[in-house]
Design a protein around this nucleic acid. Structure first.
Lengths: 221, 221, 221, 221
DNA sequence: GATGAATGAGGCTTCATTCAT
DNA sequence: CATGAATGAAGCCTCATTCAT
């Protein structure tokens, strides 16, 4: 349920269409398969070189077409990154909500959220990388105002849970919920910079390691 | 000492000069004052809009001159950001070394390093922001290979200290030193994105809050 | 008749066909009805935004189809505007000829031509607008050379009539026939820019007003 | 005075300049000489091929520079045409006002205005041509809203004079002042399409011919 | 040191048109 | 007939950089 008004930017064409038009024989969602493929390629490039440093030609070449042809599918370079980010946001927000709706104890809920967040590192590596590296640039554009909004909604979910944990005695009273949330969030997402899927630790291991430190600290007791 | 081969990019003029180069008639250190002022302006802009999105004209305008005139001070846009980053790296590395050289216990050393890192957030806000946001782009350029090297040196300092802490029983054996270092590092630097000097918590408060969580976790015990 | 070699640009298909071409199975004249509808839509757009500023997609969208589909009806954007203009020219020239063939006095003939010209303002608004606004651009293209030719023929009709009027004593001797024709022509056509069908004056009123001024001047006598 | 807020679009550069800065030795208005030369070249091309059909490269080539270099002088193609049109409007409006301020009889005033308008045909040929041919396109852009405003002011000058002429008995009561103005205006400006400076009639001859017809009609009396 | 003009490469985007399905 | 995908050329504009004055 949240706001996340995507603007995903599909080219206008047949805007006036009413009813069931289109849907003859060609596979229903096949058009969007091609589209999604292009988005994926772009995401990979954006993640690797950054949004600004990736040219529209780079993307097109990767797809084996000419740069102009991309505009048959998207109406701007921005709309591509929009699709990448909004897709990620939509998904993670509903997943977060799913964890919260399970009605577990605050501590288990936080653990669930942390595991979930680390779990997105692999499947959403590109989107998260873009978010980490290009956020500062993108947030300046009106079109991406919704990202900030979504971020605020997510913050509320976490902060409320942390506060609940303080109330029920699970979490220390002397920590600042908002500050703590931000540190958790940043630690998770920023890991995308060095996390390598095939490396020593998989994302599950990472999550457990982090939960250990986060809950009990690095001190021996 | 360390590597940090800065390439700081002063205009090639009198390259062969030894000894007292650059000291014609104008006030001795005044030229370099002007230079540093420009670097500071640029850093501010890079931090605000990103390295790529900041144009040479932006910087020049901020300084009240024309873009071409900047080239009397620097030989490229890259050399400016180089100066910003290498300055920061040089300083923080020697500061880190200073803490380590005090020969405190591993736990106190880590605490000292954390405090020091948070302490740079305010005076080096711009440099750290650039590092966080544009690292991915800059690291791809040969000229900035030294940044990766410096980073490795820093990593070694921290990891060695954490390991020492595990050996002397201060830190838990079941945490991964490298992983732990990275999480600490990221948590500190990434805070630059939301840390506001005049806000609720100053950087000292932030540090203490983080040390609390890092050492003992958020759980009640 | 006249030259007016239209090039009207029907798709090349069955080029060699003689006799009853184009008459497969679909309703006989229905295809051309569709075609004319498209031409009308295009004319409206060309008039509103100009030939160059109107894209093939604009036209297609207006018709509820995709731009590529237009090429089943026309073989180029130019061929559409050609159809618009040649249609208008063909019609007006034969109408002019009709007036002249009535063999009235020069003064009445001129009056008839003026009334006729003003009369086209409403039914041919789009074509005339295109002619006024895009003439300069279109005349540069070989394909539209016939427009200039037609224009010359029309000029001759008017000029001859004016001269006849001078000979028979209706019109002053001290006016230049060619110059006078041009001024009349321009005054009429250019009115399309501000003439609004539903306004204070209809095209008939306009014509009478103009005739008054043209014949007797604005001075009181 | 009038409104005519030009937006003439000089590149920003040294906006913060205070006082007498700049004005060292280089001729004061020399920079603007170069600029005006470029505007003139552009005007010529716009007149010849139309605003849209003239590319920025065309203009640059004509000036012997690269297209990008044009942007050192103007910040967009639009700003060039703006300069052309606003220059023309500013001049003609003040000239019109000058005629009106002479306080002549309505008939002589109208004659003066007509002569003045025809007189601009030669020196402002390019601007008038652009105005005639590209008005429809340009008026759609916010930036050129001021043109419509200026046009209205001009209309008022003429219409008021015509009305005064009707009141004092010089002009017929049965002509519509607004309509008459428009016809005069259009007839004059549109002449730019066929008027050739070196032709049979110079612009003065044209004006006298037109005045004759306009005041007394083409009929013999 | 600064200016002003220019370069040259390249960026994003548009658009008429083609063609297999 | 229409679609959807692509082409290829071109358009406007930006920007780091150079250099004569």
């Amino acid at each position: 349920m949240t706001t996340t008004s995507t603007n995903s930017g599909r080219p206008k064409a047949n805007e006036g269409g009413g009813g069931t038009r289109r849907r003859g024989k060609g596979s229903p969602a096949l058009a969007s398969e091609r589209r999604e493929h292009l988005v994926k390629l772009a995401a990979e490039l954006f993640a690797e070189k950054g949004f600004q440093a990736t040219t529209v030609r780079n993307i097109a070449e990767e797809a084996g077409i000419l740069s102009g042809s991309l505009y048959h599918h998207f109406d701007s370079k921005e709309s591509i990154v929009d699709e990448i980010l909004s897709g990620f946001f939509t998904e993670i927000m509903s997943a977060y909500q799913g964890v919260i709706d399970q009605g577990m104890s605050p501590r288990d809920t936080i653990a669930g959220l942390v595991r979930l967040a680390f779990g997105t590192l692999e499947p959403h590596r590109a989107a998260i990388t873009v978010m980490q590296n290009d956020w500062n640039y993108l947030k300046g554009m009106d079109r991406f105002a919704y990202l900030t909004k979504s971020e605020d909604e997510v913050e509320k979910m976490w902060v409320d849970t942390i506060k609940a944990g303080q109330k029920d005695g699970s979490f220390r009273e002397d920590i600042d919920p908002k500050l703590t949330y931000r540190m958790i969030r940043d630690t998770v997402w920023v890991a995308v910079r060095w996390f390598k899927p095939g490396g020593r630790l998989n994302s599950k291991g990472l999550a457990e390691h982090y939960l250990k430190v986060m809950f009990d600290g690095i001190n021996t007791h």
